[in-house]
Design a protein around this nucleic acid. Sequence first.
DNA 1: CAGTTTCGTGACAACGTTGTCTCGCACGGC
DNA 2: GCCGTGCGAGACAACGTTGTCACGAAACTG
Lengths: 343, 343
Amino acid sequence: MEREPPPSAPRRPTMRDVAARAGVSFKTVSRVVNGEPGVSAALAERVRSAVDELDFRPHPGARVLRRTDRRTASIALLLEDVANPFSAALARAVEDEAVPRGVVVFSASLDEDPGREREFVREFGARHVDGLLLAPAGADQSYLAAELRAGTAVVCVDRPARGLEVDSVLTTNTLGARDAVRHLVAAGHRRIAFLGDRPSIDTARRRFQGYRDGLGEPVDPRLVVHDLRAPGDADGAVTALLTGPAPPTALFTAQNLVTIGAVRALRRLGLEHVVALVGFDDFLLADLLSPGVTVVAQDPAAIGRIAAGLLFARIAGDRGPPQTRLVPTTLVRRGSGEIPPRE
Amino acid sequence: MEREPPPSAPRRPTMRDVAARAGVSFKTVSRVVNGEPGVSAALAERVRSAVDELDFRPHPGARVLRRTDRRTASIALLLEDVANPFSAALARAVEDEAVPRGVVVFSASLDEDPGREREFVREFGARHVDGLLLAPAGADQSYLAAELRAGTAVVCVDRPARGLEVDSVLTTNTLGARDAVRHLVAAGHRRIAFLGDRPSIDTARRRFQGYRDGLGEPVDPRLVVHDLRAPGDADGAVTALLTGPAPPTALFTAQNLVTIGAVRALRRLGLEHVVALVGFDDFLLADLLSPGVTVVAQDPAAIGRIAAGLLFARIAGDRGPPQTRLVPTTLVRRGSGEIPPRE
DNA sequence: CAGTTTCGTGACAACGTTGTCTCGCACGGC
DNA sequence: GCCGTGCGAGACAACGTTGTCACGAAACTG
C-alpha cells in the first residue's frame, strides 16, 4: 500500500490570484498587464505591486489561445546539425536577432534526413511557432505550402526550397567555387581534382558547377570524386588520387570535413607543400596549419542575420513576393592554395 | 483608401472540424487522439481518417491548459554560447536524448551574463517548460528555488549551482588540471606557467586548484595569469612571459581559446618546439598542428547525455536527493606536452 | 422478464487568458 | 434639476482542449 503525498501541487500564480491580492477583478489585472488604457493610476499601482509580490507572469498557452494575433513569440531553427560550426554560427546569429524582439528559439538537427525534416516541421507547426528557419534536407519542400497556409512564416537558409516559392538566403556557391578553381588555374594548375559531398545536396551540386566554370576546359572525370561526407572518406579518396596514375597537382575540396580529410591525407603522404589545396568553407585554426589552408570562406553569421530579418518581416505581415538573398564568399589566401604545380 | 482583403484568416483545424467531418462529437475525437478506451472500432476509424484528411494536430497550448500533468513536452537549454564547440556538442547530445521522448528544445546563450541568465530562466519558466538545463553564468542561483517550487525541473551542467541544491553534471576539472601539470612535471618541467580564464568562473577556479595540486611545490605568482578570455589576451600574456626574465619552460592553458592564443604566440616566437604546452579542453585539428597539441579532453556529449537523463528522470517524478555526476577527462598526448625542458 | 451492470457516446465545465458588452457613476450642458 | 456623455470597472463569452458526469442501449443477473 504505497502512497505518494502530492507535494501541494505546484502551481504558478494566475490573474485571479493577483486580482484577489489587489482587491480588483481579474479583468483589471489583464488590462494592467497588457498596458491597456482605462485603469485609474491608483488601481494600476495596486495591481503592479501585487504582480511583483507574486512574481506573476501571464500563461503563454492561455494567452495565445485567446489573442487575435495568435502569436507565440517563438521560432524554430531546423539546421543540418547544431554541433557543426557552420550551423552553430548561424544559430547564434539568429538568436541574436530573436532575443531583442522577445522571441525564443527552438532548435533541431536534421542530419540530412528528409523524414526528420518533415516530422520537425509538423511538430513545430503544430506548436504554432510564428516562423520556421529551415535548411532543407529533402529533395522536395512542396509540403510546406500547408504550413504557409496555416500562417507559419518560412525562410530557407543555405539551401533553397524545391517545389515551393519562399524567401531564401544562400551562399554564392557557384561563384565561390569558380573563384577557388580560377585561383588555382591562375597559379598554373591544370590537373585540379574535385572532392565533394553528395550531389543530391544543392550546395554540393552548385560547387561542382563552379568547379567546371572555373576550369574553363573539359573536366577529367578521373579527377572528380563525389559522395564524400566524413574526413575518413576524403582521406581515402585523396590518397587514391595522389598515389594513382596521372595524379592532380591541386585539390579543390568542396566541403569542410572533406578539406580536413584532405589535409590529413596530404600530411601523411608528405605532400602538403607540394600539392595545392583550396577548400570551401573556413574552419578554426586553418591559419595555424603549415601551410595555412587557403579557403573560400562563407559567412554563416550573415546568413543567419539576414534570414532572421526576412523571417521577422514576414511575421510582421510582409506579403511581398519571395526573395532570394545571396551572401558572397571570400577567398582567404593562407599558403596551401598558392603552391605552384610541381615541375 | 487602402484595404487589405484578409486572406481568409489562416487557421488550423480543431477537434470540432474533425468531429464535423467524422459525424461525431468533438469529445470522441479527443478520446481517439489521446488513445483513451471506450470508442468503438468503427467510429475510431472514421475519426482517424478525418484526422488524416484535415492533417489535424491538437493545439499544445489548449492541451497544456487543461491537462492535469501540465506537461509542455519542452525543455530549455541555457549555455554559455551555442556557437562555441563545447556548448554545441553538449546541445546536440541533449537534443538526441529529447527527440526520442517527443520533447522539443529551446536554446539560448548566456554570454557569461548573470542578468541574461535570470531573464531567460524567468522567460522559460513562464513558458512552462518541463525542465531547464543550465550552465550558470551568475554567482548565485538561489533564485531558482522559485522555479523548482513552481514545478520546473532543473539540472546544472559544466558548473554547479551556488546557493541551491540541484542535480549537476560536471567535468573533473581539478583532477584533469592536476594530471596535465603532473604530466609536465614528469617530463622534467619545474617552471610551468598557468594561463586561465576569470577565477570567478567555477571551472577556471578549479583548474587553477588542479594546477597547484599538480605542481606539488609553491606557486610562483609571476607564472600565473588569470582573466584571459579571447585568444588575443592569451597571445599577449604568453608573449610577455616568454620574452620576460626567467621564462617558463612549459605552459598549462586552462581554457580552449587561451590554448589557441598560446599556440599563436609560440608560433610567432618560433618556440613551438621548445616550450611545452598542455591545454584544457580539446579542439578540432589539434592533432594536425606541428607539434600536435597535447590536451586534457573533456567529453561534452557525455555531459549532455547524462544531464538530460537526470532531467527527464526528475520530470518523470524522481524526488531523490540532488546528485552530482562527474565526467572524467582524458589526457591526449600529441607532442606539445612531451617536449622536455630546455637545458 | 424485471432489475442491474456495463459500455459507448455526448453534454458540459474548466483551464487562464483576451475581447466585447454592460453597468454605474461623476460630469457637463441647457 | 434633468438628461445625455464619457469613463472606469466588472461580468461574461470564447479560444481548443481534457476531465467529469449523465444518459440511453445493450448485455448480463437471478
